[in-house]
Amino acid sequence: TFTSYQLEELEKVFQKTHYPDVYAREQLAMRTDLTEARVQVWFQNRRA
């Protein structure tokens, strides 16, 4: 599960791009204290 802060950050990036590159995902992962893999999976699920 994600915190409301994490979801907010993820959604913010999703609004800009549905396909963030690895750099964007790593920045987001650091900001949200998630792994890059978790961020990647979240985007895959969000796009589905």
Rank of each mutant, 00 (worst) to 15 (best):
T32F: 08
R47C: 06
R46C: 03
V13F: 09
F2Y: 12
E36F: 08
T3I: 04
D21W: 02
L7F: 04
W42A: 00
Q44H: 10
A48S: 09
Y19T: 05
N45D: 14
L7S: 06
E36G: 05
M30S: 10
T17G: 06
Q6V: 05
Q44A: 11
A24E: 15
S4L: 11
N45F: 11
K12E: 10
L28S: 01
T17Y: 07
Q27R: 08
P20E: 01
T1N: 12
F2M: 09
E11N: 06
A37F: 10
R31E: 06
T3R: 04
A29Y: 04
R25C: 08
E11T: 03
V41L: 15
T1I: 12
L7Q: 07
Q40D: 15
T32A: 08
R38G: 07
L7I: 13
Q27Y: 07
R31N: 06
A24F: 11
R31P: 00
L28E: 00
T17F: 07
V39H: 00
L28I: 08
T3W: 06
V39A: 01
T1S: 12
Y23H: 12
E36A: 10
E8Q: 11
V13D: 02
K12I: 07
A24G: 05
H18T: 07
A48Y: 08
Y5W: 12
E26F: 12
V22D: 09
A29T: 05
S4C: 12
L34V: 04
R46W: 02
T32M: 09
L7T: 08
L34P: 11
R47D: 02
R47H: 04
K16H: 09
Y5M: 08
K12R: 11
D21I: 02
T35S: 15
Y5G: 05
E11P: 01
V13N: 02
F14E: 00
Q44F: 08
Y5T: 07
L28P: 00
F2E: 03
F14L: 02
L10H: 01
Y19M: 04
Q40T: 11
Q15P: 00
R47W: 04
T17I: 06
F2R: 02
D21H: 05
T3M: 05
F43R: 01
F14R: 01
W42M: 09
L7R: 06
F43N: 00
L10N: 00
K12Y: 06
T17D: 11
V41E: 15
Y5D: 08
T1Y: 13
H18K: 11
A37G: 09
V39W: 02
F43I: 01
Y19I: 04
Q44L: 07
V22Y: 14
D33E: 12
Q15S: 12
V22C: 11
S4R: 13
L7A: 12
T35M: 04
Q40P: 01
K12C: 06
R38L: 15
D33V: 05
V13Y: 09
Q15V: 07
R47E: 03
L10P: 00
D33I: 07
Q27I: 10
Q40E: 15
D33C: 14
D33S: 12
A48N: 11
E36L: 11
K12Q: 06
V22T: 13
S4M: 11
T32W: 14
A48H: 10
Y23K: 13
F2H: 03
V39K: 01
F14G: 00
V13E: 10
V41Q: 15
F2Q: 02
R47P: 02
A29D: 15
A37V: 10
L7W: 09
L34D: 01
A24K: 05
Q40K: 15
T3D: 05
T1A: 13
Y5L: 09
Q15E: 10
E8M: 13
H18Y: 05
Q40C: 13
E9A: 06
E8G: 08
Q27A: 13
Q6W: 02
L28H: 02
E26Q: 14
V13G: 04
T17N: 13
T17A: 05
F43L: 04
N45T: 08
L28A: 02
V41H: 13
F43K: 00
E26K: 14
E8N: 09
A48R: 12
S4H: 13
T1M: 13
R46P: 01
K16T: 12
E9M: 09
E11M: 15
D21Y: 02
A29H: 02
A48T: 09
T1R: 11
S4K: 14
L28M: 03
Q15T: 07
L7V: 10
L7N: 11
E11R: 03
R46N: 03
T17Q: 08
E11Y: 05
E26N: 12
K12F: 05
Y23N: 14
E9Y: 04
H18Q: 14
R47G: 03
Q44D: 09
Y23D: 09
T32V: 12
Y19R: 04
E11A: 03
E11G: 02
A37M: 10
K12D: 04
E9W: 06
E36K: 05
E8V: 09
A29N: 12
P20N: 01
E11I: 10
L28Y: 00
H18R: 14
Y19E: 05
D33F: 10
Y5E: 08
T35F: 03
Q27N: 06
